[in-house]
Amino acid sequence: MDVEVQIPKGLLNKIVDAGIKMYPKEYGGFLIGFYSEDFKTLHITETILPSEYRNSKYSFERSAKGIKGELKRLYSLNPKQHYVGEWHTHPDNSTQFSITDLNAMIEIAECKTVGINNPTLMILSINKSRLNDFEFYVYNDKKLLRYE
């Protein structure tokens, strides 16, 4: 794939703050955005935080309960904003995805109500007080590819 992703600094900070609040447990949310006309660039514009989730130092499970209304509202904007992927933190750990993460992305891409083939996964390595690093992966055909 020949694609890129962009995220505004303010949104990144918002995500980092939400992640650090949950330290030392993992935390995450939904990524919202839109693709450029040539489908080469993903602009991430927003995150929706889950209303229900379970988490520990090494896992994060989120529910999509209650977000349909918000998704509908975002889709009515111009340009249409829609669900483009997921983010979660790895407290005191690298930004490398786990097998669980890959399997989750396979399930998401194959889900009937998901209209995109290449959802994005963002992993943030954080510690108690700040962001160490973050990485975006794009899902394609049962693999997660790093943007470089």
């Binding site: 993992e26 995450g28 939904f30 090494y58 896992s59 994060f60 499970e61 989120r62 529910s63 999509a64 309960k65 977000i67 349909k68 998704l71 509908k72 975002l74 889709y75 249409k80 829609h82 669900y83 997921e86 979660h88 786990s98 097998i99 669980t100 993460d101 989750a104 399930e107 998401i108 889900c111 109500t113 998901v114 209209g115 995109i116 083939n117």
Partner: peptide, 17 residues
């Protein structure tokens, strides 16, 4: 996806590691 005409709804429950 071909035929996708409305907004996506992500999977109900999803676990990450």
């Amino acid at each position: 996806k071909t035929g996708a005409s409305t907004f996506s709804i992500p999977t109900q429950n999803q676990r990450f590691g």
